[in-house]
Amino acid sequence: MSVWQAFIELLKRDLRLAMRRRAEIANPLLFFVMVIVLFPLGVGAEPNLLERMSAGVVWVAALLAALLTLDSIFRSDFEDGTLEQLLLSAQPLSVMVLAKVVAHWLVTGLPLLLVAPLLAMLLGMKSAAMGTLMLSLLLGTPVLSLIGAIGVALTVGLRRAGVILSLLVLPLYVPVLIFGAAAVDAAASGLPVAGQLYILAAFLAMALSLAPVAAASALRISLS
């Protein structure tokens, strides 16, 4: 089996598994929506305030929702032993990791992207910024999944991984958050956004090329 075939097969398998457990796809989305609903309730429903905060709030909520789902990248495979088989297979582990991350993003990141404009509307974001919001999430959420995969790979063998995972991963998420929210803010005030989006794209290119390798070596350590 060629590497590419193996990549596709693993991707299909993960997507099929996810489709069999649809509730698990819906839960993070529900979380995303609820976090965003909490903000107006907490800070007051003043339209100006909400509009100014909307870019950051949507991005922070997306980041937390991504964090919440991270554990599912490797957890079930670790528990039933599939991960060890992947390690033993003849295919390069980093490519297999990438397939799992892509599947994870398709299941958790993409729905987030589709719901985001609706929620941004709830917060009164200007419609001019919607396109940029989608684009920045499209570029940014895969980075969150990729970086998160490293953290999950490091903590998959631990019993209480949740808190440590967020400690490890959140500081690394900050640049994505900064540039993602900055792009949306700039779009809302009618400024050019190409710079921020290019930087997000650069983050994505870097994460795509480096994170699978790091996650693969982390997995080897966790399973050794």
Binding site: P171, S217, S222
Partner: peptide, 27 residues
């Protein structure tokens, strides 16, 4: 703090050291 937390969370000394090294490089 994340590095320290990870090192103290992994029980096996050897894999704790290597996991911490990977995390340091990521950071």
């Amino acid at each position: 703090l994340g590095i320290i937390a990870l090192h103290s969370a992994v029980e096996d000394r050897q894999s704790a050291g290597r996991a911490t090294a990977v995390l340091t490089l990521v950071g």
